[in-house]
Amino acid sequence: MDSTIVAILVQDGIVNGAIYALLALSLVLVFAVTRVVFVPQGEFVAYGALTYAALDSGSTPGSLWLLCALGALAFVAGVIRRGPVLRLAVTSLVLPAVVTGLTLWLAPLKPGVAVNAALALAIVTPMAPYIYRIGFQPLAEASVLVLLIAAVAVHLVLAGLGLVFFGPEGSRATAFADFSLSLGDLTLPGQALWILGLTAALMAGLYGFFGFTLLGKALRATAVNRLGARLVGIATAQSGGIAFALAGAIGALSGILVVPLTTVYYDSGFVIGLKGFTAAIIAGMGSYPGAVLAALAVGVLESFSSFWASAFKEVIVFTAIIPVLLWRSLRHVTLEDEEE
């Protein structure tokens, strides 16, 4: 094992870790705002990737119809709960219709990377807030366990639909740009640079969003104290929907970023999501910079263990969180908490 191998492994680990970091961030966000452990996060990665790959090959992705169906369901759910009909109609009926129209028009034309990525994002992202409205809003007061199981139910549905829409085999898309950067022995593919750059940009964006915008501050307020936020006029349902939308967008974007680099399957997302979780737990499910660092560490650990003992890679990666957790819990002596 020479320095070149070390360098390549570190680079590979960091690129994967960047994806885990994005997922970890959105998991932390959703949990903080809604107390939902967002298990279906992985499906958004797979949907984003496979929708983009379908557009890339010039065909209409099946997920488009799911968007319309979810929009209609979300509209019905919103109307039943006496939401503002006009606004609901715009967000859950008109929006999918517009996206569908654009996709049907543009997809056969093979409009290029930027348009495809934008379309894939527009198809996949709104599903998340629709799912929040249909599935989680009625459970806002339920325990974390019930919310977790509801998330598992959504995961089952989305994974099953993923198989129907995208089939059991994987897909890959052409790279955003066909260039690579040479640094001595190390060759960085252009796509890896895209991943690192966009991840960094997205993190900076999130930092700005939470630090300096009213909406971002409102989300943070909800995360700190749900009741308090409601008392000062921040609607829990609204902030939940926004958190889900952000998570959906981040998931879909992660998928779009990785699909030119590796093959993505309808069920790829779960394990990627689980590693994002691992990073989020290591970071303590509350710290954004911590989650990013932990995610990069998980990626690098994974990369090295696949070199050293590939059959036991998952064993190593998933066992590694235990000493970390132990250290954390020893450091913070928790008193008996009264949350369930």
Binding site: N16, I272, S303, F304, F307, S310, A311, K313
Partner: peptide
């Protein structure tokens, strides 16, 4: 003698080991 999982996003580690 290496292994990889069906949904792995990267097999760089295994491939480097094999090439070695």
């Amino acid at each position: 003698d290496e292994r990889f999982a069906r949904t792995d996003a990267s097999v760089t580690g295994q491939v480097l080991k094999m090439l070695a």
